[in-house]
Write a protein that binds this DNA or RNA. Structure first.
Length: 251
DNA sequence: TCATAAGAGTCCCGCTCACC
DNA sequence: GGTGAGCGGGACTCTTATGA
C-alpha cells in the first residue's frame, strides 16, 4: 500500500477527493493531509510518502514553488489538480517532472488513470531499488504528458478551429517540433489524428441523431460545409448522406 | 530545439442537382 | 424559387520533413 499526501486547504474538497475513488483498492492510502503546498516539504524528508497530490485551486504560485522545492529534495511522484485551460501552468509543471496533471473538476476516471500510471512507476522503482524513481519511467517516455495534453485538448475542443500552431503557442513549443513529437508518439501526424477524431464523431452523430449534415459539420469543427463533404467522403468512401442511409438499412 | 521550403490542408466562390 | 447536398478549382495558410 503506497502512502499519499493530499495537499488541499479546502476540507470539503479534500473529502470529495477522498471519496472520488476506492483508494485502497487501487493500492493507495491517503494518510496525511496538508493545508498548503509548502507544508508538503516537511513530509518529504521522512521518506514515508509515495505520492503527493496537490490542488492548485488556491494558489498556482505556491503550488509551483512547492513542486520546485520538492523536486530539489526528492523524486517522489506528484499529481497536480488545476484548471482545464491553464497551459502555462501545465508547461511549467512539466519542467518539474510532475507525473500527471488533472483538470478540475476532477473525474474519477482521470484520477484512476493517474494513480495507475504512478503505481507502475512505484512498482518499477521498488523492483529496481538502486535506480532513481523518476528516471526509470521518464527516461522511457519524457514527452508523453505533452502528447496527452494535446490529445485531451483535441477531444475537448473538437468543435472549434484547432491548429497545431495554436496549440504549440499555448504550450510554448515550436510548432514544427511539437508536430514531430506528436508523430513520433502516435505514428500519425497531428492533422491525421484531428481528422480521425472529427470523422469518428461525425459518423456517430450521423448514426445516432437526426441532425442536418451542415449542423454535424459545424459540431465537429468544420466552418466550411463543402470541405466537410470532401473529407468525409475521402475518409469513409461514402458521402455523409449515403453513410447515414447505409446505417439506417443495416439497423 | 529551431528555421525553412515544399507539399498538404483549408477557405472561398461558383456551380449543379434533387427535393419540396 | 428556396434549401440542402455535393463537386471543382484557385488562392492562401498551415503542417511536415529536413538540415543545422
Amino acid at each position: 500500500m503506497y502512502k499519499v499526501l493530499l495537499v488541499d486547504s479546502n476540507r470539503r474538497s479534500r473529502e470529495e477527493t477522498r471519496q472520488l475513488v476506492d483508494w485502497r483498492r487501487l493500492g493507495f492510502d491517503i494518510q496525511t493531509y496538508a493545508d498548503h503546498a509548502s507544508d508538503a516539504l516537511a513530509y518529504i524528508d521522512g521518506g514515508q510518502i509515495s505520492l503527493i497530490l496537490i490542488s492548485l485551486k488556491d494558489s498556482h504560485a505556491e503550488g509551483m514553488s512547492a513542486c520546485e522545492q520538492i523536486r530539489q529534495r526528492s523524486r517522489v511522484p506528484i499529481i497536480l489538480i488545476g484548471g482545464p485551460d491553464e497551459f502555462d501552468v501545465v508547461r511549467k509543471a512539466l519542467t518539474f517532472q510532475v507525473s500527471d496533471y488533472i483538470a478540475h473538476p476532477m473525474q474519477a476516471a482521470d484520477l484512476i488513470a493517474g494513480l495507475q500510471s504512478v503505481m507502475k512507476q512505484l512498482d518499477a522503482a521498488s523492483s529496481r531499488a538502486s535506480q532513481p524513481l523518476w528516471r526509470t519511467s521518464s527516461a522511457k517516455d519524457p514527452d508523453k504528458p505533452i502528447i496527452d495534453i494535446v490529445k485531451q485538448f483535441v477531444q475537448e475542443h473538437l468543435n472549434q478551429n484547432i491548429t497545431l500552431k495554436m496549440l504549440s503557442s499555448l504550450l510554448h513549443f515550436n510548432c514544427a517540433y511539437l508536430g514531430q513529437k506528436f508523430k513520433d508518439h502516435e505514428n500519425m501526424s497531428f492533422n491525421e489524428y484531428l481528422l480521425q477524431q472529427r470523422m469518428e464523431r461525425a459518423k456517430l452523430l450521423l448514426e445516432q441523431t437526426d441532425m442536418r449534415i451542415y449542423e454535424i459539420a459545424s459540431e465537429v469543427g468544420y466552418t466550411e460545409i463543402d470541405w466537410f463533404y470532401k473529407k468525409f467522403k475521402a475518409y469513409t468512401g461514402a458521402s455523409a448522406n449515403e453513410y447515414r442511409k447505409q446505417c439506417v438499412i443495416t439497423a
